[in-house]
Design a protein around this nucleic acid. Structure first.
Length: 941
DNA sequence: ATACGGACTTGATTCTACTACA
DNA sequence: TGTAGTAGAATCAAGTCCGTAT
C-alpha cells in the first residue's frame, strides 16, 4: 500500500501498492558506527556510509529468521573491541541479563515472525486476495502453520521482513561489517560535493524538456486508498466489524482498519474546496510589505546585547511592520470562526504591570472551574476571547523565579569501588561523577557502540586529574560494575519507599513546582514547561549520531541568560553565583536560556503548552492550514503544471512539493556532518528512491526508503503519475547514489516559492493541513451516529491512526504487548463461552416461558438481559483488542498533539455526544482549552 | 548566495504515578 | 495489599524556519 495523503488524490493510479509502515524501523538503523564521520569534512563520506548502511540493511533483511538469530549471536560476541574486554565479572552479569533479555526477545521474535509474515502476506495480496481473506475465518488463520507463513514471508520483499528488535540485533552485528566496509570505501571517498557541482552544470544542459504526452488530462480520480499493513488481527477484526457494522454503513468500501478510502469526489464535494483563492494582489502586497520592512527595524541579538540601555525603546515598534502582516492574516481568519466569539475590550496591559501579581486581569473573562477533589478552583484565562496583540511583542510583563538547577553531585559511599585493570582506584569527584553517568547506562545498547565509547572516554579523560588520566586509557579495563550495582540498589530503594516517604517527597515536589513552575505574564499566572535545567549526563543522540557518548556538562548560573521584565522582581541566582546575563526582550517567549556544550545549541525555558503564548501560536498554525485548504486546489494545479516546466529548478520544486503534499514528507533541511545522516524531502538522495516502471501490478512506482527525523525509517511504495516518474528518471540521470535527488532545490527556495503562493505558507503547513483534513474526512467516514460509545471511540482512534500512519509516527512495540494481547484474547474466549452458556440457558428458559407462568417469563427476561449484557461486554473487549493491536507500532500522541486541529475533535465529540475526556486526557484538555471552548458541533476545518 | 545561529515546534524515549487485578 | 501494566508526564534530541552575518 502506499501511505499517502488521502486529500491529495487527484493524480495517481487507483491502486495501492503494498508498501507498509509497519516496518519503518524505529531508530534502530543506527547500528553502524560513524565515529569517523565527523572527522571527514566531506559530505560524501556520510552519504556513502549511508548508502552502505542501506545496502547492508537491505541485504541483511534477506536473512531468514534463523540467520537473524545467528547474526544476533554474532553481534553479542562481536561487540566492539573496546567493550568486549570489560571485566569478566561484568561480562558474566551482562551475559546473564542478556540471556534473560534474549529469552524474551526470542519469544517476541517468534511471535513477531508470525505477525510479520502475516502482515507481509496481507500486504502483498492483491485486492482479490484480500477479499478471499475476508471470507477466511480467523480460526483458520491461526491454524495455518508458522512454517508456511515464514516461507511465504521470505518470498516477500526483503524490506518488509523487519521489525525493530530484529533490526537492533542485526545492526549490532552488521555494524562491524559496515565499519570495515566503510573503511574500505573511505579511501575512495569521492569529494562529491565538488563533483556534484560539476554535474549540476552538465545536467543543466540536459534539462531540455522531453516532450512527453500530456498525461495530465488523464488524471484518474478514482478513490485512492491509504492502506496500512494488515495483520492477522486486522483481518479478524475486519470480519467482525464488517459483519456487524458495515451493513449499517459504518465503514466504507474497505472496512479494514488499515485501509481507508479517500475519494476525490468527496474532496470535490467539500464546499470549502471550491472556494476561490484568496485575493492574490492582497497577499502580494503583504509580501511586499514584509520585504519593505527596514532592516533597522529588526532586532538583532547583538543590538540587544549592545544596548541594554535601549531596552526602553518600545520594542513593540520594532517589529511592527511584520506583525501587522501577521495580524491582518489572523484577523481575517478570525472572522471565519463559526464559534461565537465575544470580543472583549482589549485590556490595557502595558501599564503598571508591576502592580499586577497573580490576580486575573479585570478585563479578561476568567471562568472558575471546579477540579475534582482537593484541587482548588482554578482560574482559566480565556485569552482566545481577547483580541490579539497588535505590536508583535510576546508579553508586556514577565516575572519568574528563574530556572531550577540540577541537584549537586553526591559522592558515592566509600564501599562502592571503581576498578581499573582489576585494581581498586579512588577517583576524584568529577571523574567519579562522569564515571557514574556511564555506569548507569551499562545496561543500555549505547555502551556497545564504539562511537559512544570513544566519545565518552575522550570526554571523561578531560575531566580527570592529571594522574587519573595517566592511568585510565582503556575503557575496556574499567570496571563500573559496583557503581552500577549501587545505582540499581538506590533506585530499588526509591521504589520501595514507604507511604510517608512518598508523600513527603510529593509534597516537596509540589512545593518546588509551586515556586519555580509558574510565572506571571501580563497579569496572569501561567505554567512553565521545563523549569528544570537539564542535569549533566552523557549525550544520547538518536540513530548513528557522531556525538553520542559525549559529556553534557553541568550548567551553572554563569551560563544562564535570564529574560524577564525590567520592572519585575528579577530572579536571584543561587547564592555565590551570578547570571550570565539578565535581559528584557519581550519579542521572545523564553524565560531563561543556556547553550548546551555538545552541539552548541541554545536551550530554553519556555511556557507550558496550556499557556496563552503557546496556545495562540498553535491556533494560528491551524488557521494557516485552513487557509491552505482554500487554495490547495490551485496550488496543486500549479505544481502539476510545473512538472512540465522548462527549467529543471522548477520541475524539481514541483515534484518535491508533490511529495510533500501527497506523502506529508518533512521539508528536509541540509544537515551538518556532525549530526546523524537523516533526510527529508529536499535532501533526498538518489539512493533513497527506487523507480519501478511496474511493480506488483502497478505502473510507475516510486519506492522510498530513507531515514527521516530521529532516524526513523520511512518506507513507502507509491504509484505516481507518469510525468512525475519521467521527471524523477531525469533527475537521476548521471548521478551517483549519494547525490542529491533535487540538486536545484533547497528548503529555502521551496519555502520562498510557497510564500508566493500563499502568505505564511511553508512546507510544514502541508503536514498540518493534510493531517487535519485527513482526520476530519476519516471521522466523517468512520463515525456511525448510531454506534455505541466504544465504537465511536474506536472510530476516532482509527481516524487518528490514519493520520499517524500518514505522518509516519512510530513507536516501539510496548514491552508486554504480546502478553497482554494474549490475556485479552483469553478474556474474550471466556466471555464467548459465557455467552454460549447464557444462550442455551435462555433457550431453555424461553421454552419454559412459552408454557407458562409469569414467574418463568420473568426468568426468561432476566436471562435475555444477562445475555445482552454479556454480548455488550464481549464487544467492548473485542474493540479493545482491535484498538490495542492496531496501535502496536503506531504512536498516536504526536499527531494528536501537534497536527490535528483540536477543534475537529472537539466538534466531533460535541456532535456525537462523546465526552471530551474520552479523547483528550487532562494535559491535552489543558492545551486545547481554547478549542474546547470555541468549537461547536458544526465546526468545519 | 550562503553559512550560521536563534527561536520555536515536533518527536521518540524514559520516568513516574496510577489503576486494575490477583 | 502487592504487583504488573499502562497512561501520562517529563525529558531532551532533532527538526523547521527565519533573520542576520559574511
Amino acid at each position: 500500500m502506499s501511505v499517502e495523503n488521502p486529500a491529495c488524490d487527484n493524480d495517481c493510479d487507483t491502486g495501492k501498492v503494498n508498501g507498509n509502515k509497519s516496518e519503518h524501523v524505529n531508530g534502530i538503523h543506527n547500528g553502524y558506527n560513524s565515529s569517523e564521520k565527523h572527522k571527514s569534512s566531506h559530505k560524501s563520506s556520510s552519504k556513502d556510509k549511508h548508502r552502505d548502511k542501506e545496502r547492508d540493511h537491505k541485504s541483511s533483511s534477506k536473512h531468514s529468521s534463523s540467520s537473524r538469530d545467528k547474526d544476533k549471536d554474532k553481534s553479542s560476541s562481536s561487540k566492539n573491541h573496546s567493550s568486549s574486554h570489560k571485566s569478566s565479572s561484568k561480562d558474566k552479569e551482562r551475559d546473564r541479563e542478556h540471556k534473560d533479555r534474549d529469552k524474551h526477545k526470542e519469544k517476541d521474535r517468534s511471535e513477531k515472525d508470525k505477525e510479520r509474515s502475516d502482515k507481509d502476506k496481507d500486504r502483498h495480496r492483491s485486492d482479490k486476495d484480500k477479499h478471499k481473506d475476508k471470507e477466511r475465518s480467523d480460526k483458520e488463520k491461526h491454524r495455518s502453520s508458522d512454517g508456511e507463513k515464514k516461507s511465504s514471508s521470505s518470498k516477500d520483499k526483503e524490506h518488509k521482513s523487519k521489525d525493530r528488535d530484529h533490526d537492533k540485533d542485526r545492526h549490532r552485528s552488521d555494524k562491524d561489517k559496515r565499519r570495515s566496509e566503510k573503511d574500505r570505501h573511505s579511501s575512495s571517498k569521492d569529494k562529491h560535493s565538488s563533483s556534484r557541482h560539476k554535474e549540476k552544470s552538465s545536467s543543466e544542459k540536459q534539462e531540455k524538456v522531453k516532450s512527453e504526452p500530456d498525461d495530465s488530462s488523464s488524471i484518474k480520480q478514482e478513490p485512492m486508498e491509504v492502506d496500512q499493513f494488515k495483520s492477522d488481527q486486522e483481518v479478524k477484526r475486519h470480519e467482525k466489524v464488517k459483519n456487524e457494522i458495515e451493513d449499517d454503513g459504518y465503514i466504507g468500501v474497505n472496512t479494514t482498519a488499515s485501509s481507508y478510502d479517500f475519494s476525490m469526489s468527496q474532496f470535490k464535494d467539500d464546499p470549502l474546496a471550491e472556494l476561490p483563492l484568496e485575493d492574490d494582489s492582497a497577499s502580494g502586497e503583504e509580501a511586499r510589505e514584509e520585504e519593505d520592512k527596514p532592516l533597522s527595524r529588526r532586532i538583532t541579538p547583538k543590538k540587544r546585547a549592545a544596548s541594554e540601555s535601549e531596552e526602553d525603546t518600545p520594542l513593540l515598534q520594532r517589529k511592527k511592520t511584520k506583525k501587522k502582516v501577521k495580524k491582518d492574516v489572523f484577523d481575517e481568519e478570525e472572522e471565519e470562526e463559526e464559534a461565537p466569539r465575544k470580543k472583549k475590550k482589549k485590556p490595557e496591559k502595558n501599564k503598571a504591570m508591576k502592580s499586577i501579581k497573580t490576580e486575573p486581569h479585570e478585563n479578561t473573562s476568567p471562568t472558575k472551574r471546579k477540579k475534582k477533589g482537593e484541587e482548588e478552583e482554578q482560574e482559566v484565562w480565556k485569552w482566545w476571547e481577547e483580541s490579539k496583540k497588535e505590536d508583535g511583542t510576546k508579553w508586556h510583563y514577565l516575572e519568574h523565579k528563574g530556572p531550577l538547577f540540577a541537584p549537586p553531585y553526591e559522592l558515592l559511599p566509600e564501599n562502592v569501588k571503581f576498578r581499573y585493570d582489576g585494581k581498586i582506584m579512588k577517583l576524584s569527584q568529577d571523574t567519579e561523577e562522569v564515571a557514574g553517568f556511564y555506569a548507569r547506562m551499562l545496561d543500555h545498547d549505547y555502551t556497545t557502540k564504539s562511537t559512544f565509547n570513544s566519545n565518552f572516554l575522550t570526554d571523561w579523560r578531560k575531566v580527570m586529574t592529571h594522574d587519573e588520566a595517566k592511568v585510565i586509557k582503556d575503557l575496556a579495563k574499567c570496571d563500573f560494575k559496583e557503581m552500577q550495582q549501587y545505582f540499581l540498589s538506590v533506585s530499588e530503594k526509591n521504589k520501595n519507599r514507604s507511604k510517608e516517604e512518598k508523600a513527603a517527597l510529593k509534597a516537596k515536589n509540589e512545593e518546588i513546582q509551586k515556586e519555580y513552575g509558574f510565572c506571571t505574564i501580563d497579569g496572569h499566572k501561567e505554567k512553565i514547561g521545563n523549569f528544570r535545567i537539564e542535569p549533566p549526563g552523557l549525550f544520547r543522540g538518536r540513530g548513528e549520531h557522531p556525538k553520542m557518548g559525549m559529556l553534557k556538562k553541568r550548567v551553572m548560573p554563569e551560563d544562564v541568560l535570564i529574560n524577564c521584565s525590567k520592572d519585575s522582581k528579577i530572579p536571584k541566582p543561587p547564592p555565590g553565583h551570578k547570571w550570565r546575563e539578565v535581559r528584557h526582550d519581550n519579542t521572545v517567549t523564553w524565560l531563561a536560556s543556556w547553550t548546551e556544550n555538545v552541539q552548541g545549541q541554545a536551550k530554553y525555558v519556555m511556557l507550558n503548552p496550556s499557556s496563552k503564548l503557546k496556545g495562540e501560536k498553535d491556533w494560528q498554525k491551524y488557521e494557516t492550514a485552513r487557509k491552505l485548504h482554500k487554495c490547495i486546489d490551485k496550488i496543486r494545479d500549479t505544481y502539476r503544471a510545473d512538472w512540465k516546466a522548462k527549467e529543471m529548478r522548477i520541475r524539481q520544486r514541483a515534484v518535491a512539493l508533490y511529495f510533500i503534499d501527497r506523502l506529508a514528507l518533512r521539508a528536509g533541511n541540509e544537515k551538518d556532518d556532525d549530526q546523524a545522516d537523516t533526510v527529508g524531502c529536499c535532501s533526498l538522495r538518489v539512493e533513497h528512491i527506487e523507480l519501478h516502471k511496474e511493480k506488483d501490478g502497478k505502473e510507475y512506482v516510486v519506492v522510498f526508503d530513507f531515514l527521516g527525523k530521529d532516524s526513523i525509517r520511512y518506507y513507502n511504495e507509491v504509484p505516481v503519475e507518469k510525468r512525475v516518474f519521467k521527471n524523477l528518471e531525469h533527475f537521476m540521470e548521471n548521478k551517483k547514489d549519494s547525490d542529491d535527488l533535487f540538486d536545484r532545490l533547497t528548503t529555502q527556495t521551496l519555502n520562498e516559492h510557497l510564500k508566493e503562493l500563499m502568505p505564511g505558507l511553508t512546507a510544514k503547513v502541508f503536514r498540518t493541513y493534510n493531517a487535519s483534513i485527513t482526520l476530519q474526512r476519516q471521522l466523517d467516514e468512520l463515525t456511525d451516529p448510531d454506534a455505541t460509545l466504544p465504537e465511536k471511540i474506536l472510530a476516532y482512534n482509527r481516524a487518528n491512526r490514519a493520520v499517524a500512519i500518514l505522518c509516519n509516527h512510530q513507536r516501539a512495540v510496548p514491552k508486554g504487548h504480546s502478553k497482554s494481547m494474549e490475556a485479552l484474547k483469553e478474556k474474550i474466549q471466556v466471555k464467548r463461552d459465557q455467552i454460549d452458556e447464557a444462550e442455551s440457558d435462555l433457550h431453555d428458559a424461553a421454552k419454559a416461558a412459552k408454557r407458562g407462568s409469569v414467574k418463568e417469563k420473568l426468568a426468561c427476561d432476566k436471562k435475555k438481559k444477562a445475555l445482552e449484557r454479556l454480548k455488550e461486554q464481549l464487544m467492548k473487549l473485542e474493540l479493545q483488542e482491535t484498538d490495542r493491536d492496531e496501535n502496536k507500532t503506531i504512536a498516536l500522541g504526536t499527531s494528536k498533539l501537534n497536527y490535528l486541529d483540536p477543534r475537529i475533535s472537539v466538534s466531533w465529540c460535541k456532535k456525537h455526544g462523546v465526552p471530551i475526556e474520552k479523547i483528550y486526557n487532562k494535559t491535552q484538555r489543558d492545551k486545547f482549552r481554547w478549542a474546547i471552548d470555541m468549537a461547536g458541533p458544526d465546526y468545519v476545518f
